[in-house]
Amino acid sequence: MIKFILRRFVVMIPQLIILSVLIFALAKAMPGDALTGQLASNPKMDAQTLHELKQKLGLLDPPYKQYLHWAGGLLHGDMGMSVIHQVPVTQLLAGRMENTLILSLAILILSYMIAIPLGIVGGRWTDSWADKMVVGYNYLTFATPLFIFALIMLFIFGFVLNWFPTSGSVDIRVEDGTFSYYMSKLNHLILPALSGAIVNTTVTIQYLRNEIIDTKIKDFVKTARAKGVNESKVYTQHILRNSFLPIAAFLGYEIVYLIGGSVFLETIYGYPGIGQLFIASISQRDFSVVTALVMISGLATLIGTLLSDIILSAVDPRIRIE
């Protein structure tokens, strides 16, 4: 097991190097740099100072040198300076990363809380009216784009009913670390998390429902019934455990997917996470931030895949990794 994880990490090294080269090349290929905008907006900036500034920032070095400088920094956890915000990228990301992780986890937990009971109801009582409602709900959430759904939720619960705040991750008036600080964080989290979760339930419900329908006609379920196991135990001991396998296996990917998918939610709800930062940085040509974010999401994807494999081997004795 440890050997397996180590080997996977070794394999990740070349993957990450290739990814970093690609990201760097793409960032360089984009028109303009962080200073282009300042030239027009800042009348004091003349060509001479601009040149000096570029030299200082290393923007005039040959590309490979720039790459090595950047990649070397990455190894030390130095992702460069944000030209726009004038703070180190790491510092800029730290707080937002935390927000995005909290939001993603909240979405994951909420969507499982909704999807698992609905999937079980649909799978166990197939073709009942309850199942038909689950299937209907699924069609609806499948057909609704996240950004529209999020906007509607924001409009109804934020603006019309005024139940929840409409932007930010915490009230600026409360003091850090107090009870009301955490309550405020929670209050800001509910609406984006709920909208994300509801749209995210579709796949899980569908998987679970199908899996239960497939599993409940399997022979070992018949064996269990022939032993005299009562119906509810047949489900908890035999059918459900087997039906959860693909969902457990999907967990690792799911987390990564949610982190990446937070762009819409964070933008709509003005929630200060990395998704929102990503959009802003692209439009402001803040490349050190953009490259850092792409790099991080690349790494997260690789770790998510590994995580999925590890989870699957933990829950399914037939899958052994060595």
Binding site: D219, A224, N242, L245, P317
Partner: peptide
């Protein structure tokens, strides 16, 4: 079929 008649996770 003894393969399918037993629960693979137990």
């Amino acid at each position: 079929d003894p393969l399918t008649a037993l629960n693979p996770l137990m």
